[in-house]
Simulated scan of single mutants.
Amino acid sequence: MYRKVFKRILDLLLAFLALPFWILILVILAPIIYLQDKGTIFYNAPRLGENGKVFKMYKFRSMKINALDIRNDDGSTFNAEDDPRLTKIGKFIRKTSLDETPQLLNIIKGDMSIIGPRPDLPEHKYLYEGNEKRKLEIKPGITGFNQAYYRNTIPWKERIKNDIYYIDHLSWWLDIKIFFKTARSVLKREDVFLNKNSKESNKNTGVET
């Protein structure tokens, strides 16, 4: 019952409660993001949603216009504190996770949940092996098991295993623990960026993480 009904009700309740605070954040950040390089305020990222449906995930833009798409060896997007693609305000909103806050709109639209597997890029569906597509059984989340306990410290394939673990053990109590553990990690700014020694490959397409 929680998974099918109450989780969605709780998502909407919390999203609408947070919306006035997010509007205040938008009013403050929007002109700063724009004035950095006269670019767009938002980055609309195509992502895999529930049952493999592709949707636009909203983020505050943290990278320079037409930034390179840098990937790690496992196909996941590269993320580092000294990433030259980040704008000055972009580095700040990444550290504080404010870049993810526009996803409140995705929750209201029904694309995402507050807690669930972080959504993959559309092309990642061709890299799934075995039962890894199971991570698409539920709506992706703004945060999830990986973000709460590991953030960016483990490889993509290991994150998928944790996503499936979350789906198999989904409960109200687990969501509560993930919510508060995420809040603690964000406040302490733990493991926001990937290890600097991560290997990456470049592609000339403007994609943010």
Rank of each mutant, 00 (worst) to 15 (best):
Y2H: 11
K4L: 14
K4W: 12
F6E: 02
K7N: 05
R8H: 08
L12P: 07
L12W: 09
L14M: 14
A15V: 06
A15P: 05
L17F: 15
P20S: 08
W22A: 10
W22V: 12
I23E: 04
I23T: 08
L24P: 09
I28E: 02
L29D: 00
T40M: 08
I41W: 04
F42T: 06
G52Q: 01
K53V: 07
M57G: 05
Y58K: 01
Y58L: 04
Y58F: 03
S62G: 02
M63P: 06
K64Q: 09
A67E: 01
I70S: 03
D73H: 01
S76V: 00
F78P: 00
A80H: 07
E81R: 06
L86W: 05
L86Y: 14
K88C: 10
F92Y: 05
I93H: 00
I93E: 00
T96W: 04
S97W: 02
S97Q: 03
L98T: 00
D99C: 03
D99P: 07
E100F: 11
E100I: 10
T101D: 01
P102R: 06
Q103I: 05
I107Y: 07
K109F: 13
M112Q: 11
S113W: 12
I114F: 15
I115S: 12
G116L: 09
P117Y: 11
L121C: 00
L121S: 03
H124G: 03
H124T: 13
Y128W: 11
Y128N: 06
N131I: 12
K133W: 00
K135D: 04
G141V: 13
G144F: 09
F145I: 14
N146D: 04
Q147W: 09
A148D: 11
Y149T: 07
N152A: 13
I154S: 05
I154R: 07
K157R: 15
E158S: 07
I160F: 02
D168M: 09
H169P: 10
L170F: 07
W173D: 13
D175Y: 08
K177Q: 15
K181T: 15
K181P: 04
A183M: 14
S185Y: 03
V186Q: 03
D191S: 11
V192T: 09
V192S: 02
F193I: 06
S198K: 09
N202D: 11
K203Q: 13
T205D: 10
V207Q: 09
V207L: 13
